[in-house]
Structures are given as structure tokens and as C-alpha cells.
Amino acid sequence: MTYSPITAGSPGAGSPPSADEPMDLRARHRRVGERLIKVLLAGSALLSVAVTAGIAVSLIAPMWTFFGNVDIGEFLTGTSWTAGFGDKSSWTDKDWGVLPLVVGTLSTTLIALLVAVPLGLGAAIYLSEYANARTRRVLKPVLEILAGVPTVVYGVFALTMVTPILQELFGAQFFNNLAPGLVMGFMIVPTVASLSEDAMSAVPDSLRQGSYALGANRMKTTLRVVFPASLSGIVAAVVLGLSRAVGETMIVAIAAGTQPQLTFNPLEGAQTMTGFIAQVASGDAPQGSPVYYSLFAVGALLFVITLVINMISIALVRKYRQAY
């Protein structure tokens, strides 16, 4: 029995592509699944942009009506806000200065950050640099459970548990900014801790080993090597927590009160921007009234504040971003 050798061009050989056949086989034989995934991803990105644009467009017409009757300078610089009091159908007998709502929002947000940033970064440092793999697998999901608790539960907890303690220790008012600020800080701890831990864990071990080889201990390595290397991710985590604190509604609506007063004392109550929006959106003002239109003006200002925060976040992340 004889066997014929397989030569080039025979059925069993892999013939090279001809000159007129495209060399990029991926462009010619692109799988349908890849195209579908690309379309879905592009659609998701465009949907997010469309929703954001839709929110902005929905605010324009009512906001235009509001500022047709209220001076924008008075709105941005005025120190008295009485939109929810008196005759809700009148434009002239009310004060439309939004500063009390802005200060109330910034007050609770600052308190929340003072709680969340140290605790969140401390938890991230422990999980990334000190905890073993088994401890990390247990503690990180437990920590992230806090992010799944409904915010209305946090609000009730702030009003019924934290506020009495503050009244006993510091003489705080029943509605105050300190209680919701503290509870809101614990609410955003998982956001800061989880994202910061992910950023720190992404730092190559070679940087740590190089630091240890130079005689640095674990704490110095963490603070002077790992922390600066992951700074962009940490900044993004803090700014994301900040954005969530600025936009939080239920905690401040329940525990901060509904009195819009310009105060920097956290032991006193002051209505926030989101608290006012929740109050009006719950049916407190009839549709088409001045108070109803003020809802969109405050919402537009909150939208701009959040946009500015995100733009600053993007700039900081790009500035401190490092690729390995």
C-alpha cells in the first residue's frame, strides 16, 4: 500500500490566502454576537446621555416660567425662603432666596463626608493591605450590606435613635442637621470603602515589594506608595460619595425638618434642597402654582451643582491617574 504525500493546494493542506483575499480575517468573519454586544453597549451609553438630556429639557420650561416672575439674582443670593408658607398662588408675598436650602444641603453633606471619608478609607486600607483573603471575603460583603439598606430606614433611625442622643449630650433641637449628617455618613461608607479598596488592590505588588526592600514597614508603604498610586480611584470614590450625599432625600426629609432657615449650627434644623423637593412633590403645592414652579428651579440648581461636582471629579481623576 502506498501513500501519496500531502502537497500544497491538495484538499488536506492549508493553502495560504491569495493576493486578492483580505488578510484581516476578523473584519471578514466578524461574529454576530460581537456586533450585538457592541450595539447593546453603544445603546446603553446613548440611553444614559438621552436620560440626562431629558432631565435637563424637562426642567427648562417650568424654570423659565419661574425666573420670568422671580429675579435670578434674588434667587441665588437671597437669604430667606418662604415658598411653602402663606398663599401658594401668589408670587409677590414670598421670599425666593435659595441660600438657606443650599446651606442646609452643604451642612449635612460636609458632616457626612467627615464621617464617611476617614471610616471608608480606614476600612479600605485594612481590607487591601492588612486583612487576609478569607477575612476580606467575609468583611467586604458585610460592609456593602449597608449600601442596600433603604434610606427611609436610615431616616427613621436618625430621628428616633440618634436625635435623642444628641439632645441629651449637646442640647440639639428635635430636628437638626447633625443627626441626618452622621447617619448619611455611615450610609456612604460602603461606597467610599469599596471603591477605594478596589483602587488600592489594583496597585501592583511590585511597588509594595520595592518599598519593603528599601526598609519601609507596612504602614509607610501603604501611606507613601499604595495610597498615592491609587489616588485617582480614591478621589473618584470620595466624589461619588459626595454626589450621593448631596442628592440624598429621605434621611434629610425625615430628620432635618422642613424649616428653611439660614444657619451654620448643625444642632439646629434646616431644610435641604432635596427635602424641599420631596415636600413639594408629595402634593403640598397645587400644579401650576408659584411653589410648584419653584420645585423645578431648585431641581435645576441641584442638577447644576451635581454636574459641577462630577466635572471636578473627572478633572481630578485625569490629573492623578496612573497606568501600570
Rank of each mutant, 00 (worst) to 15 (best):
V32E: 14
R224F: 14
P286T: 02
I305D: 05
W96P: 04
G283K: 00
A281Q: 08
G43P: 04
S194M: 03
S10I: 00
A216V: 08
G155R: 00
L110D: 07
A229Q: 09
S44H: 10
T109G: 07
A83P: 08
Y126Q: 09
Y130P: 04
T135W: 11
S107W: 08
S128E: 02
P164W: 00
G181A: 03
G155T: 01
N265K: 01
F75R: 05
S107T: 14
S48K: 11
L40F: 12
L76V: 11
T306N: 13
M250I: 02
N177V: 08
S282P: 01
I72G: 10
L182T: 01
A42N: 12
G241S: 02
G210A: 15
W64I: 14
P204A: 09
N217W: 07
N265G: 02
N176Q: 06
T306Y: 05
T65Q: 13
A27R: 11
M219N: 12
S211F: 08
G9L: 08
F276G: 08
P266S: 05
G104I: 03
A56D: 07
P190S: 04
S48Y: 12
R26I: 12
G269N: 02
V239Y: 09
W64L: 15
V115W: 04
V117I: 14
F85I: 15
A112G: 12
K88Q: 15
L99D: 04
A53P: 08
S196C: 06
V280E: 08
T109F: 01
S206D: 13
L231E: 07
S232T: 02
T249I: 08
G14A: 14
G148L: 01
V102I: 14
G275E: 06
M1H: 14
F174Q: 13
G54S: 09
A133I: 11
A300Y: 03
A245G: 07
G104P: 07
P141N: 06
V115M: 06
T151I: 05
I251E: 04
V192H: 01
P286E: 02
D24L: 12
T65W: 05
S313V: 06
P100K: 02
